[in-house]
Write a protein that binds this DNA or RNA. Structure first.
Ligand SMILES: [Mn+2]
Ligand SMILES: [Mn+2]
Ligand SMILES: [Zn+2]
Ligand SMILES: [Zn+2]
Lengths: 154, 154
DNA sequence: ATTCTATTGAAAATGGTTTTCATTATTAAT
DNA sequence: ATTAATAATGAAAACCATTTTCAATAGAAT
């Protein structure tokens, strides 16, 4: 699962006239090997541990690029920083939504009822597209609450 | 609709040992008289026009307070600043969700299918509460797309 | 190995928001 | 109306995630 995805990625970059550099590979490997929703700085720290001459600026730039390429998704969970996740990963389910603890900020992926959610979303999208002339290309569904652990704490 | 809500608000503040000051009243009046989702700075500009010695700091502080009091809601639509809306207003519908143009950043309230949405949300909330022990107290549903007008522009 | 230029890292700049602190204004009691 | 207690304010500075600048570096096709 190393060589293969590496070449796949390489191809996607080269296809757009982009270079597949060490920082880009390391950032993709970092996102590939976690189920967490990492911030730019968290990614930077992990990459930096392996390869100390990668800068935070490059992490930001690469994340923007990967988002534009459709390889990662950006989320705002309310802690003031963007968080990122591989669009398709071997370590987590496909289309899913998020459950956020407003106290400890942990984020849980869930896919209970997603099919029903997606079905309803499609219906709403169609209605909104017609009614407002919008061309819809994305949605966000998030639940906020207090996790089991944080409910105990004062 | 002036004197009445003014006294209602006054009571809500005094009930918590808080004072009902001029900046607070002006900010509430500003939010009451628009259907837009204003940013702190936009609110500041409008308040400042009427009453030039109100500071931006106070606007931020007041918005935080009003959110904690449950009088306004805060949203992040992806333009890097928080936007606010009165929870219950005479100028707009009740429970609704949002449609955001990623190009011109306009936000449209919609309530088509909200009942179905809310019904499904309840079901999901219940499942998530049981499965993860979460105490859920809010949700976000947003659609992103390109508005009719922006589709024409290059 | 060479050339072309996309990419990089460091430092500075940006922009929304928060903190600090001395001053002011709201309120309840007088 | 005055007063006293203290919540609230405004200005300036600090904060912090992100972006911009720019000279140096390093992919990749030849
Ligand atoms: Mn996720
Ligand atoms: Mn709204
Ligand atoms: Zn928690
Ligand atoms: Zn638009």
């Amino acid at each position: 699962m190393e060589k293969k995805s590496k070449m796949e990625w390489h191809g996607r970059f080269r296809g757009r006239g982009l270079r597949f550099t060490i920082p880009r590979r390391l950032i993709l490997e970092t996102l590939s090997s976690t189920i967490d929703h990492l911030s730019a700085e968290e990614i930077y720290i992990r990459v930096h541990r392996k390869y100390p001459n990668v800068g935070l600026t490059t992490v930001y730039r690469t994340l923007d690029l990967l988002e534009r390429m459709g390889i990662i998704s950006r989320f705002q969970f309310g802690d003031g920083r963007s968080r990122f996740e591989l669009v398709q990963s071997s370590t987590k389910a496909g289309h899913h939504h998020h459950l956020v603890c407003t106290s400890c900020k942990q984020v849980i992926d869930y896919d209970d009822f997603v099919e029903e959610e997606v079905e309803l979303l499609k219906k709403v999208e169609k209605a909104l597209a017609k009614k407002h002339g919008f061309e819809i290309n994305g949605h966000v569904i998030q639940f906020y609450g207090v996790c089991n652990n944080c409910q105990k704490q004062p």
